[in-house]
């Protein structure tokens, strides 16, 4: 069995005694095939009993052990030490708690904010069946309808995407990727009756429209769920249901129209179209400041030369509504069951 010495550089912090987080180094001999979690357990049992982290199933299904390894959020129990060695194996492996959540101690973070957001956004199915009739008969659900929510129901609430999300970085009140994914999963469940209500909640401030499209959540999902497909489908659903009055929706619509019509943005009128007249007034000081700094958006925007090609893209997307947006990294792409009809 291949063995080698490996150094671990682990972030420590006990709010009771430490003024600020610091790093501790441990060097241990590990065998090939050992996971980061086994290494942490070894360190705890043999070198530092105070080292604090969460773990439970050891099999990648409970979501307890998500941490940042060399700066990337992943599960300690499914990550092999060998796979994260850098510098020919001489660099220490950097171990830190998840980002965007308060540290309780060392690698343990407070995940209650995720639970709160799940609750606020009605992350559950409310069936049409009356209470007293539960259990009498099955809903009939086609295999296709099941497949629609299959991948999204893989989420183990590990928080990795929450930690990687760029929007979370600037706004802790942001709805967050796992909660958006749950909303997608529920809104595409044919048995659920809360679609409109949930979507209304999801599209309020700090919600669906704030997502920055950075794809980081999806790139780092420990279950390889194409979260972004879910987010896109929710946005489409918001439009299909006529929820076009929110700032975010208007912003998206303005983008959509500009690109279709001229191939670029008409920045000057964007605030007007997004925020309305009153809202835009609030932006006047910012505009003046930007103007003084010489950052003026062009007043007249010309159509780009090969606008036909842009139109072609629009046409093709139009023809494949509800299709998957990006190449599937998951074996089962998220396809939405197109919902339509306005909401009361």
């Amino acid at each position: 069995m291949e063995r080698r010495e490996v150094s671990f550089r682990i972030q420590r912090y006990n709010p009771q005694v430490d003024r600020a987080p610091f790093y501790d180094n441990f060097r241990i001999a590990v065998e090939k095939g050992i996971t980061i979690l086994r290494a942490l357990n070894y360190i705890k049992e043999h070198l530092e009993p105070r080292l604090t982290f969460r773990a439970f199933c050891q099999a990648g299904i409970c979501g307890s052990c998500a941490i940042r390894i060399n700066g990337v959020s992943r599960l300690a129990c499914t990550t092999q030490v060998w796979d994260v060695l850098t510098g020919g194996g001489d660099d220490p492996i950097l171990i830190e708690p998840l980002d965007n959540l308060e540290v309780i101690r060392d690698l343990v973070v407070d995940i209650d904010p995720i639970m709160e957001k799940l609750k606020r956004n009605q992350s559950w199915v409310k069936p049409a069946i009356p209470e007293e009739e539960l259990g009498r008969k099955e809903h009939i659900v086609s295999d296709e309808q099941f497949e629609t929510i299959n991948a999204a129901s893989d989420c183990i609430l590990c928080g990795s995407c929450y930690s990687e999300c760029s929007m979370m970085q600037v706004n802790r009140d942001y709805i967050s990727p796992p909660v958006l994914l749950k909303a997608f999963r529920m809104n595409n469940d044919t048995r659920d009756t809360l679609g409109c209500q949930r979507l209304r909640e999801v599209t309020t401030d700090n919600g669906l429209w704030d997502c920055a499209h950075c794809y980081k959540c999806m790139e780092h999902c420990t279950k390889k769920i194409p979260i972004m497909d879910g987010i896109h489908h929710l946005r489409e659903e918001a439009f299909a249901r006529g929820m076009t009055h929110t700032e975010g929706a208007r912003h998206a619509q303005a983008f959509f129209d500009d690109i279709r019509d001229i191939g670029r943005l008409k920045e000057v009128t964007l605030p007007l179209r997004t925020k309305g007249v009153l809202g835009s007034l609030g932006m006047v000081p910012l505009a003046i400041k930007m103007g003084l700094k010489g950052r003026k958006p062009p007043l007249l925007v010309k159509r780009i030369p090969d606008i036909e090609r842009v139109r072609d893209i629009y046409d093709r997307l139009e023809a494949d509504r509800g299709g998957e947006v990006v190449g599937a990294i998951h074996e089962l792409p998220l396809r939405s069951a197109p919902r339509s009809g306005g909401c009361l």
Binding site: W124, V125, P127, I129, L134, G135, R136, K137, E138, H139, I140, V141, S142, D143, Q145, F146, I149, N150, S153, M186, D189, R191, D192
Partner: peptide, 20 residues
């Protein structure tokens, strides 16, 4: 009845071709 109840409450069971 207990399995159907969970199904009614949203548990995503795999399905046969007839939707059961």
């Amino acid at each position: 009845s207990v399995v159907r109840e969970l199904e009614n409450l949203g548990a995503p069971f795999s399905r046969f071709a007839d939707g059961t």
